[in-house]
Amino acid sequence: MATTAAATKTNWWNGGKSPFNVEYGKLMMWYFLMSDAFTFGAFLISYGTIRFSQNVWADPNVVFNAFPGAGHTNLPLAFVSVMTFILIISSVTMVLAVHAGHNNDKKGVMKWLAWTIVGGLAFLGCQAWEWHHLITGEHVVLMDNHLDVIGQTTRVNPWGQMVNPATVMNALQNTPHDALVKIVGSHHHEMTEVQLAALSDSQLKGMIDTAELHVRETGPVAFGGFFYGITGFHGFHVFSGVIINIIMLVMTSKDVFTNKGHYLMIEKAGLYWHFVDLVWVFVFLCFYLI
């Protein structure tokens, strides 16, 4: 029965057994992940196609340069590398959980599963912060020959090319009152919006230092849709992975697998979790690195 069977030449394909020596559930999980790779692949390739069709694209190092609690400090790639490490580590803890399952070590499975769940929740928290930061961000852009303040949404993108100072000065003259209030407000935190709104246009314009404004044109609109769409779809996978892991944790604590005599379910949940990590590797590449 045991490993000696591998030594003798087995004809795997003759029927009556699995040609790959795996039970059907694991096989189905593998092929499901393969097809899910095509779902993600299609998303990322669509993103690439649209990106190739544009003359300019948002520079990731400019878009993703914030860190929680660091204010306006320019820290490109810092936060996303934290997120990446969280996922890698949670993948490692999942490997250990699966391995503990192989040894029928219930306590080990529970310990490592719990850590994996913590990692997953931490990642989701990071993503929520990042989305919130991007959506509520205030960036001064040149729009229809006047200035405006916008965040990164699915409909507008503030990450176009830099505008030269002369054009900014010109556009400033056409900028309506409420936009001026927002521009000044984003740089002068000592005054409330009500106080600023009471000021006249020329007073507001006097408070603006065009050199520190970093005015950009609006960028390619598709960027936001793809970013939120793809990271959202990935986040949905992380979320469902966390749910699956919680279910596994409850089942383990109720001795379901001990009674069955094997922890194959943990193995399949593990495959799913690693896949989530794998997808992130590519999302990280496509959105943050290149």
């Binding site: 092929y31 393969m34 097809s35 899910d36 095509f38 779902t39 692949g41 299609a42 998303f43 669509s46 649209i50 699915t154 409909r155 609109v221 598709a222 936001g224 849709g225 793809f226 769409g229 779809f233």
Partner: peptide, 25 residues
Amino acid sequence: GILSFPVLLSAAILLLFDRNLGTSF
């Protein structure tokens, strides 16, 4: 089916976004 249906799923999701969320895919 396994290799091609997921791509239609992606296409359909992006189209739903274009229809209802104002994206420009």
